[in-house]
């Protein structure tokens, strides 16, 4: 596993942390990882893993709401060039569901005993880390049962992205389908919905 300190792959910092998940504030506007991405935060001696379950871009100041600008602009880039302060006044945040952690003992695919610290650096997991984490899919139940999250879309996005890190993506997805069938016994409509998302 790599826990690179290179700031170039740093996505942002934790601004809200709880046992079940954390929210990160992106260093750059619109630079959130895609829905379902596996991210990590924390130091070598205590890394917490999360799956991106929601992304929000909004005004930094809740009392200042964005409004439509430059009706005659030919591109969205032109709007930002005409008002360069916007990139400093808007913020992108992403929420994650905690799915595991790593400590001195090794990798665990269940909730960490403590949430990450506020301002912890958040990184996108490398293909190798994602592959290692998804060798077992026991954390899938966290995604499928998370309150206040688009559970099925997050689970499908997580599996689809993870599949690309495995040498045989199709075999990975077949294994994932079997795990889903176990997790969603008696919920055939949900199961079919997720499988449809995986097949696209």
């Amino acid at each position: 596993m790599t826990t690179s300190k290179n700031i170039t792959d740093r996505l942002g910092q934790v601004v809200v942390a709880s046992t079940t998940g954390f929210t990160a504030h992106c260093h750059e506007l619109y630079q959130a990882p895609p829905l379902g991405s596996l991210v990590r935060c924390g130091r070598d001696d205590g890394v917490v893993y999360g799956v991106v379950a929601g992304i929000t871009t909004e005004s930094l100041d809740p009392s200042r709401r964005p409004m439509a600008r430059d009706a005659k602009a030919e591109s969205e880039d032109e709007v930002y060039a005409n008002h360069p302060q916007l990139t400093r006044l808007l913020a992108t945040r992403f929420e994650t569901l905690s799915v595991g952690y790593r400590d001195d003992v090794g990798l665990h695919r269940y909730l960490a005993p403590l949430p990450p610290s506020i301002y912890s650096f958040v990184h996108l997991c490398s293909d190798g880390e994602t592959r290692e984490f998804t060798e077992s899919l026991e954390s899938l139940s966290v995604l499928l049962n998370a309150p206040n999250a688009p559970q099925d879309d997050v689970a499908a996005a997580f599996l689809r992205l993870a599949s690309t890190t495995h040498s045989d993506p199709r075999a990975f997805l077949v294994r994932a389908g079997k795990e889903l069938a176990v997790q969603l016994i008696g919920q055939s409509q949900r199961l079919n919905g997720i499988l449809r998302r995986l097949s696209r």
Binding site: Y80, P84, T87, L89
Partner: peptide
């Protein structure tokens, strides 16, 4: 700053 290199410092 406006033009070829738009930027803002607040």
């Amino acid at each position: 700053t406006y033009g070829s290199k738009p930027d803002a410092r607040l």
